[in-house]
């Protein structure tokens, strides 16, 4: 499934917050086409790691490479170009509450330019069909339920067909039925588009069969990296306790 070409690389990334290390010498590589599950206790630095990968937060030391380009050393214009290839699904939806659903989903394409309005709308409707929410184009985010908002956010993240996608807890706070629907959606997308992605999740059972490999973070440090069989074979008590019941 993977080509062996490193798409996402973190090398010795450290980030301080008022003298405390919130990211401690993290090194991570994700190959093209892989889906990495990123798990760990609350507050361990997972969301921060994704933000560092997007260039929304600058690390205090270390380098971050997206498809070979070190994003900690490039200009804002070049960073914009890199970001055009990344789709991000935020933990709290981050839907623009001043735009309706259609404008929200179309936003990345309209900002990037270069696509006709009719084509944009076609794609929006296509995606709405795909996430099973046809016809809600003119509603506003505050009129939608949590599950609906998550699906709209997903649509917005993938509409520009980015080669890299970050999911920050796509099923947080959702009921089991909706959760499994979301994971099915992610899996189908991953399979058909061959994207490279990182998925933060607390739902180990639900995500277990979707992610190719796993990384675990605790208090800013990377404590495990490997696939499911490595998880099973691990003798680290932290790992076994965390995965207890989900294997």
């Amino acid at each position: 499934m993977t080509t062996g070409h490193a798409m996402i690389e973190l090398h010795n990334v450290t980030k301080y917050h008022e003298r405390e290390r919130v990211l401690d010498n993290v090194s991570l590589v994700v190959d093209e086409g892989q889906m990495l599950g990123l798990v760990g206790p609350g507050g361990s630095g997972k969301t921060l790691l994704l933000k560092v990968l997007c260039g929304l937060v600058k690390p205090d030391s270390g380098s971050v490479l997206i498809d070979g380009v070190d994003i900690t050393r490039i200009s804002p214009v070049e960073l914009s170009d890199v970001r055009k290839r990344i789709g991000m699904l935020f933990q709290n939806y981050a839907l623009f509450d001043f735009l309706n659903v259609e404008d929200n989903i179309a936003f990345p394409l309209r900002r990037a330019g270069g696509m006709g309005e009719r084509e944009i709308l076609e794609r929006v409707n296509e995606l709405l069909e795909r996430v099973n929410l046809p016809g809600i184009n003119y509603q506003f985010p505050n009129e939608l339920s949590g599950g609906m908002k998550k699906r709209v956010t997903f649509a917005r993240a993938v509409i520009a067909k980015p080669p890299i996608i970050f999911y920050d807890d796509p099923t947080m706070g959702l009921d089991p039925v909706t959760s499994s629907k979301i994971f099915i959606m992610l899996e189908e997308f991953q399979r058909t588009q061959r994207t490279t992605s990182i998925c933060i999740t607390h739902d180990l059972l639900g995500a277990r069969d979707i992610c190719d490999e796993w990384a675990m973070i605790d208090e800013g440090r990377l404590v495990f990296r490997g696939d499911l069989s490595a998880v099973r074979a691990s003798s680290d008590p932290f790992v076994t306790e965390f995965w207890d019941g989900a294997l």
């Binding site: 997007c54 929304l56 970001r83 981050a94 839907l95």
Partner: peptide, 17 residues
């Protein structure tokens, strides 16, 4: 409110400074 609900981050991700 937009900052704490990550909408501003989402704007940045879409090249809207």
């Amino acid at each position: 409110s937009m900052v704490v609900t990550e909408q501003v981050d989402a704007l940045r991700m879409n090249d809207a400074e």
